[in-house]
């Protein structure tokens, strides 16, 4: 099981053309997710970030104009976990059943080992007490922590996240960013966000997606351990820089 998560490969996406309702979203787009790094994708709403995430997660119908390949030559489907902006916790299932959903969907039930692993992860995110609680009784931050555990339970080498923290308040968001950075270290992560600060704290490289059809600008490379401090001068100056680039692209 651990061998899957420790697989190390880069993922490349080459999209000649992706259209939605006849409008071209991307043309000639190339994106590489380096192995075991966090790649952040920044862009304003509607630029096609979610489409890109869904493409990588295998949620869009196969399209001859798009190829997603891994540099170890094996296919990506089955090796990627997906986390959305909504927590997508099943309201009728308790937290433990929700985080073991993957096993329950594949094998019909979660065996003892899976349940123990789930409990251990729930303990790490501080949800031990809530294992038997229904999602509706949890706060937004707790729900997103449960969703994070569910993503981790899939134990996939690649994780794509579509604005996973954007619906949270500022303090909860900062805490969850730290938790995610910690728990998803050593994985190949694509984090889509509209928050430059989030990208700067967590990303090893940051892409800005601008225009229509969207193009990828040269990535901004960052060094040093994540999550970076909010007082880090590089983070602060980077934020101004990224906001300028995003605002510039938004001008008519």
């Amino acid at each position: 099981m651990n061998d899957l998560a420790s697989q190390s490969f880069a993922v490349s996406i080459d999209a000649a053309r992706v259209a939605y309702d006849g409008v071209a979203l991307f043309e000639d787009l190339h994106l590489t997710l380096p192995a075991r790094q966090w790649t952040c994708l920044l862009g304003e709403s509607g630029v096609g970030k979610s489409t890109l995430v869904r493409l990588i997660a295998g949620l869009l119908p196969p399209d001859s104009d798009v190829t997603v390949s891994c540099d170890d030559g094996l296919p990506l489907p089955g090796r990627v976990a997906y986390m959305a902006q909504q927590d997508l916790l099943l309201p009728w299932a308790n937290v433990l059943d929700n985080v073991t959903l993957g096993a329950r969907l594949r094998e019909g039930r979660a065996n003892k080992e899976t349940q123990e692993r789930a409990r251990a992860l729930l303990a790490r995110v501080g949800l031990t007490e809530s294992a038997r609680a229904l999602p509706a009784t949890l706060s937004g931050g707790m729900r997103q922590r449960a969703a994070l555990v569910r993503t981790l339970m899939e134990n996939r080498p690649v994780v794509v996240m579509d604005e996973p923290f954007s619906a949270l308040d500022a303090i909860t968001r900062v805490r969850l960013q730290e938790l995610a950075a910690d728990l998803l270290r050593e994985r190949t992560v694509l984090l889509v966000t509209h928050d430059p600060l989030e990208a700067l704290r967590l990303g090893d490289r940051i892409h800005v997606l601008i225009g229509r059809p969207a193009r990828l600008a040269e990535p901004m490379e960052l060094t040093g351990p994540t999550p970076r401090s909010l007082r880090d001068p590089a983070v602060l100056s980077g934020q101004a820089d990224l906001l300028e680039r995003l605002a510039g692209s938004a001008a008519p």
Partner: peptide
């Protein structure tokens, strides 16, 4: 969203 999640989890 639930169906997307199920799909990425290789649900039958």
């Amino acid at each position: 969203g639930f169906l997307d999640l199920a799909r990425t989890m290789n649900a039958s």
